[in-house]
């Protein structure tokens, strides 16, 4: 894909559901019950089970990887500003989009936006990819 400075990159949608949270917990080793157990999540003051921030970031990382191929991501950072609430039996849609902030020396800096409905869930999300 050829990127141009300032280009707005097409959004992509990713589903998050309880089964995927369990699968992410097993793959990442993060078995914190707030990501799996509704009654536990509510007992610590959350609205419901919430997604691992790192799962949301992993999906945004996939968006970034797909711009220039696997292994192209050199830097990636984000703040977890709002939880992704995942009620039982529901597919929550995470919509990731990007904008090309810098192009230099074969590298592209991409600003990412990750939304669940009207809620921005990642803050200051940026990545640097090596263009092939």
């Amino acid at each position: 894909m050829t990127l141009t400075l300032g280009q707005e990159l097409a959004p992509k949608s990713y589903s998050i559901n309880r089964a995927l949270l369990k699968q992410y917990a097993d793959a990442s080793g993060d078995q914190n019950p707030i990501h799996q157990d509704e009654s536990f999540a509510k007992s610590v003051g959350l609205a419901d089970v919430i997604a691992h921030g790192m799962f949301t970031m992993a999906l945004a990382g996939k968006y970034l990887s797909e711009l220039a191929g696997s292994g192209s991501v050199k830097e990636f950072s984000a703040k977890f500003i709002k939880p992704v609430v995942v009620p039982a039996g529901v597919d929550v849609e995470l919509v990731v989009s990007g904008k090309v902030l810098e192009l230099e020396g074969g590298l592209a800096k991409i600003e990412l936006t990750a939304m669940c409905g009207q809620v921005k869930v990642l803050g200051m999300a940026k990545g640097v990819i090596k263009l092939s």
Partner: peptide, 23 residues
């Protein structure tokens, strides 16, 4: 790890895979 984000048959780890070790 890649399967959870819908990546089939990667030849290297996804960018955030390091967290599964570092955390």
């Amino acid at each position: 790890f890649a399967a959870v984000i819908g990546e089939p048959n990667l030849d290297c780890a996804p960018p955030t895979f390091a967290i599964s070790i570092s955390l």
